[in-house]
Design a protein around this nucleic acid. Sequence first.
DNA 1: CGCGACGTTGATTTGCCTCAACGATTGTGG
DNA 2: CCACAATCGTTGAGGCAAATCAACGTCGCG
Lengths: 195, 195
Amino acid sequence: MDIQAIHANLSRYVDLPLEEVEVMLGQMEEIKVFKRDFIVQPGQLSDTFYWVMEGCMMAYVVDENGDNHVMQFAQEWWWTAELEAFTKGNTSTYHIRCMEDATLLALRKWKMEELLREHPKFEKYYRIIFQNALITHQRRIIHRISLTAEDRYERFIKNYPNLELKVPQKYIASYLGMTPEFLSKLKRKRWEKLR
Amino acid sequence: MDIQAIHANLSRYVDLPLEEVEVMLGQMEEIKVFKRDFIVQPGQLSDTFYWVMEGCMMAYVVDENGDNHVMQFAQEWWWTAELEAFTKGNTSTYHIRCMEDATLLALRKWKMEELLREHPKFEKYYRIIFQNALITHQRRIIHRISLTAEDRYERFIKNYPNLELKVPQKYIASYLGMTPEFLSKLKRKRWEKLR
DNA sequence: CGCGACGTTGATTTGCCTCAACGATTGTGG
DNA sequence: CCACAATCGTTGAGGCAAATCAACGTCGCG
């Protein structure tokens, strides 16, 4: 576990001495998961926050028609969790699944509460994390309303150039709010346009 | 200004003695705005958080085609802000406009920073505010992808029963991601169904 | 009164979905 | 290591939910 890198990453948001990073890590548990594993499934309680060190995770819901809707792809240095279940103690409505063998740091809710109580600096850290996530989500809502499927795809490959290699394209279609067939046709049109 | 009510509201998220509430209020400025006023406009800097005491505000973007897209309606006890401009010091991409005469408490960024520095309990408060907002936004994204226009409208009137009286229906249509014409037809069909 | 903003309605169009068939690729058990 | 199944991407035909465009009635307001 590369404490230097972790410290550097935390320092993007808060000033922390190395000892406090160690305290945080002391509250967390390193876990390895493999492609196709689930770390969260509907109906189960999920009181854990996960920090992705390497690999790739995907959060999605399955609706009453059996259709998948991808909420998030989480790669290196992203947090992922079933936020509503975590916050309210509900059972989960999401799946969170491993798409590429991954190493995670898991932070249980009661450990997080302890951490926040005893090291209030982390309140600031998570405040900023959530604040930034909110900006991203707002942007996604606006884009879904105001952009065509094609424009959404264009932006996606600019923002996540490497993801196309890691996850099947049907999940990218889902994340972008379109069917896999339609995305396939989009890509063909795009390719023909570039000669 | 009803300090009791403000204290009660803050207490939904953090335990605060009344003196700290007063400290917070000391950092804020009460402002009155009237129907059709803007408190934020595109191209301007916006380094202020607003807490709605009464009335109703609306945050929206106008895209390159001149179409409006409503991001948020903010009523009593809601926060509203151009979060990206506030956070990064950018100029705004949103409008925030008064839809019903309102009383706001305005918190400037540097005042908020001072508040957070000297009264770290507010870090927790805002952390929770953002965390909850994030859950709401995630739900909205999923609904936009997986529900029909009709279902989205049904849920809306359940969640915001009073808003139909306050804002023109074309903005509700925009918030729900559909055209005003289509919403109009939806409502007629619905009404006919109920005999 | 007259003007501008709003909601309604109908005719038409379209972006995207559905369904079904077919290769190609990957995974798996014998 | 091969055979078979499962998963995935592609393509085409047809359909539908919602958008677009245009005309019209209504209401509030200067």
